[in-house]
Nucleic acid binder design. Sequence first.
DNA 1: CTGAAAGCGCTAACAC
DNA 2: GTGTTAGCGCTTTCAG
Lengths: 351, 351
Amino acid sequence: MARRRQAVTIRHVAADAGVSLQTVSRVINKEPNVRPEMMERVQASIARLGYVPSIAAQRMAGSRSYLIVALNDRERTIAGWRNRQGTDWVDQMLLGGMLTCAEHGYRLLVELVDTHSDHIERELLGAIAAIQPDGVILTPPHSENPLITRLLEAQGISFARIGSLKPGAGFAVAIDDEGAARLATEHLVALGHRRIGLIAGPDDYELSGRRVTGWRAVLAEAGLPTEGLLAQGDFGFETGRAAALALLDGPAPPSAIIASSDQMALATLELARERGLDVPGALSVVSFDDTPIVRFVHPPLTAIVQPIAEVTARAVALVIAERAGGAPLAAPVIVPATLAVRASTGRPVGA
Amino acid sequence: MARRRQAVTIRHVAADAGVSLQTVSRVINKEPNVRPEMMERVQASIARLGYVPSIAAQRMAGSRSYLIVALNDRERTIAGWRNRQGTDWVDQMLLGGMLTCAEHGYRLLVELVDTHSDHIERELLGAIAAIQPDGVILTPPHSENPLITRLLEAQGISFARIGSLKPGAGFAVAIDDEGAARLATEHLVALGHRRIGLIAGPDDYELSGRRVTGWRAVLAEAGLPTEGLLAQGDFGFETGRAAALALLDGPAPPSAIIASSDQMALATLELARERGLDVPGALSVVSFDDTPIVRFVHPPLTAIVQPIAEVTARAVALVIAERAGGAPLAAPVIVPATLAVRASTGRPVGA
DNA sequence: CTGAAAGCGCTAACAC
DNA sequence: GTGTTAGCGCTTTCAG
């Protein structure tokens, strides 16, 4: 194992270009006060020598680390990977996050921390001290954890809260959950459904409430009932099944169900199959996650397409822009979702 | 944006414990020549102050960066994320890689570079200069790219080649593809199949050949033919379909097909459905990837379960161990695959 | 076994 | 506009 030192440093470039270290530094950092010709000369040397600044040294000298940390919930994330249920949340995050980072010369580092831990502050502080990121992207449920947001604020680290719309420190960037719920509900109303059930997500996610709001609003506008049509799960299969059961076993069961996650939609589908309910003839089903698997079940599920990659991209861009001195915008960024109509929704029988 | 400096440095710890910087450093790095009591005293101070070393500073001073880079093919990886075909390769890599890194105080940084690029060397050199990783994990097809392996070797960076068994620099860690192919073939032979087709992967992947070898060996041992039973695809749906077509349109079509990827298996399944071939009655299908989606199609596919998380974990562990002075083991590490039997395989009609 | 000195590659502040 | 000086936090020599 050879002792690895930087092969070509700022010093080599300076010597090669016949300028001072500082000038090279200014060129690297696109700072003003460098004559164009000087800049070109330096850039030529950089290119010729294949010089790349060491992020460690840059960080050391009190500048940027060019590292953005994506903070995910350890337990949930690992469970998702192990269970292999087809959720590609992390992949979509990487897609949006890594590419946007790359555009600006940054890199994304995924970090897992436990939300429900009394030593979460120590854990986070440790990660920050070790990595010294220029920004942090918070994903649910971290985005709404005051312990985390307060700590980040106190540390003066710019961060974005994905999936949160609450005011406060950090950029709020979220999918338009209310609009998405409206979209799904309107689709079903247009098909002629009059009893449209919703399996909501757990209360510890802000977005659960927003979806209920959207669903409720459309039904109210259409003069349709909500009574006995709202159930709740925790996004998982089991609770989804229980919720679907409650809905279908009610006095006046729905002819369509919107589930707040793919697993809950799958559970609903399974239940329908068991009961001999034709989908979509006797029951239409809409999923709220367009994960890969919902396209491969029978029938393929109509689903809300969550623009996770775009949301993450926006979050990263905001964090980087703030570091670069951009205006610390106040309003939350809301990214619209779309609806992918597939075979699991149709006109209700007799409509 | 507060000027962020390290809140608590090695200096604070040294002062608190009443020792020199050097002694603290020795404790941090678990170096010898520190009296137990001294060590305890220092560790107490570290805990009390919540000290965490800055990786930037550690790297600067010529030590480890505690960063491992996972090098993936840019084009393929991004395409996989965008297409959302349910492949969870990256997730499984992160699962094995991140957790193993974490166990040793390292972090995993995913980096995308183009394999088929003439400036790949510049790209890689740049990433190395910027990140200065302690190790690199090469994934296919990078693992077999001599431009990359030579460069890494020249740089003295320890690395692992996932999916490669070739001798040479870097740890070779691979799934037992030959054994996996044997497993799948034996399963079909045991069910009574006598004409078992294989849709191989592309030649630019070493493992494609190993799978053919395993398949061929089992058939030879069982005295079964291979003639007209071997087709080839590029792991994608389209070429998989063409390959399945070639196999099924031959003079004596197979009663079972092993596809070297989930997409090619899905293509085979679709073709069978179009032709009214009952699966598994008229045609058994085995997939080589146990990605989430193959459990959600009908019928659920029997599939080789690739232990990608474990392979990555082993690769990371080897790289870290080498840095720590472990013996640079020569033999490739081969991790066995298993077979998940589902409803897409059964006895052939009339058997 | 422990400490003191030197310097890693870079940027901040200040001079010129 | 450009160069000079002084560190950032840590690990490496090398003395004791």
